[in-house]
Simulated scan of single mutants.
Amino acid sequence: MTQPRHVLVVGGTSGIGLEVARFFAGEGDDVVLTGRDAERAESAAKDLNGTARGIALELTDVDAIASALTGLERVDHLVLAAVDRDHNTVADYNTAAARSLATLKLVGYTEVVHALLPRMNDDASIVVFGGLAKDRPYPGSTTVSTVNGGVIGMVHTMASELAPIRTNAIHPGIVGDSPFWTGKPAEVLEGFRSRTPTGRLASMADVVDAVVFLLRNPSVNGVNLPVDGGWLLR
């Protein structure tokens, strides 16, 4: 019988992060999820199963990350799924919002790995969340596009520096049933769907399946994987 794995999902209180945590909890793994608020993280974990745990972690407070993670003795699978939404343009640039998002993903993500590295074995694996704004910017995506472009360099660097620990990234397209997109007008979603070769938008289940693949396949390393149904082709 396969031994339970120790899984940490950073940003696991809602949306795709929560669904990733739910999958591994259902597999019988030892799951810890994080959120900015301790009570919310504990509540989300309690809804998964009797063994999942929730802890508070604020990625923009980078100097407190290591102490927030001291209770974890081992990590086999690390999923960095926490994200902020930042609508920011060059013409009307909000430096505080830009600094917060860049710190969260580029510095915060890396500091989590740095803090946990002594507790990760050679067969451990990491999945980082980016996004397709790196390839297809839109008005207001100044920081989002820049930061998600930086995820590519982060993954390549970590895959090289941390070997044999594997590091990959997932870059979801429009995830139609995610909390952010599900409330959008039907015509907006149809506009994206009509330009997707598969004729359907990605679902949270599709993204979870891709995360599991990246974490478990021992020969996949340094990959930036789009999950978009081929949307970037059109």
Score class of each variant (00 low, 15 high):
residue 3 Q to L: 15
residue 3 Q to N: 15
residue 5 R to I: 14
residue 9 V to D: 15
residue 10 V to H: 08
residue 13 T to F: 02
residue 20 V to P: 01
residue 21 A to C: 11
residue 23 F to Q: 10
residue 27 E to D: 10
residue 28 G to T: 08
residue 31 V to M: 12
residue 33 L to H: 07
residue 35 G to S: 02
residue 37 D to M: 02
residue 39 E to Q: 15
residue 47 D to E: 12
residue 48 L to C: 04
residue 50 G to P: 06
residue 54 G to F: 01
residue 56 A to I: 06
residue 60 T to I: 12
residue 62 V to H: 14
residue 63 D to W: 01
residue 64 A to L: 02
residue 66 A to Y: 06
residue 69 L to K: 06
residue 71 G to P: 07
residue 71 G to K: 09
residue 73 E to S: 10
residue 77 H to V: 12
residue 78 L to K: 04
residue 84 D to M: 15
residue 85 R to W: 13
residue 87 H to E: 11
residue 88 N to I: 03
residue 90 V to F: 14
residue 90 V to I: 09
residue 91 A to C: 02
residue 92 D to M: 08
residue 95 T to R: 14
residue 97 A to R: 09
residue 98 A to Q: 07
residue 99 R to A: 11
residue 99 R to C: 05
residue 101 L to W: 05
residue 103 T to N: 12
residue 106 L to Y: 04
residue 107 V to E: 15
residue 115 A to W: 07
residue 118 P to D: 04
residue 121 N to M: 11
residue 123 D to H: 14
residue 125 S to V: 05
residue 126 I to L: 09
residue 134 K to N: 07
residue 135 D to A: 11
residue 144 V to I: 14
residue 145 S to C: 06
residue 147 V to W: 03
residue 149 G to R: 09
residue 160 S to T: 14
residue 161 E to M: 07
residue 163 A to F: 15
residue 163 A to H: 13
residue 164 P to L: 15
residue 168 N to I: 08
residue 169 A to K: 01
residue 174 I to G: 00
residue 174 I to Y: 00
residue 174 I to V: 09
residue 176 G to F: 08
residue 177 D to Q: 07
residue 180 F to S: 15
residue 181 W to C: 04
residue 181 W to S: 08
residue 182 T to I: 12
residue 184 K to Y: 06
residue 185 P to L: 04
residue 190 E to I: 02
residue 200 R to S: 03
residue 201 L to W: 11
residue 201 L to R: 10
residue 206 D to G: 10
residue 209 D to Y: 10
residue 215 L to N: 03
residue 216 R to G: 07
residue 220 V to Y: 06
residue 227 V to I: 11
residue 227 V to P: 00
residue 229 G to D: 10
residue 229 G to K: 11
residue 230 G to N: 06
residue 232 L to R: 05
residue 233 L to C: 11
residue 234 R to Q: 14
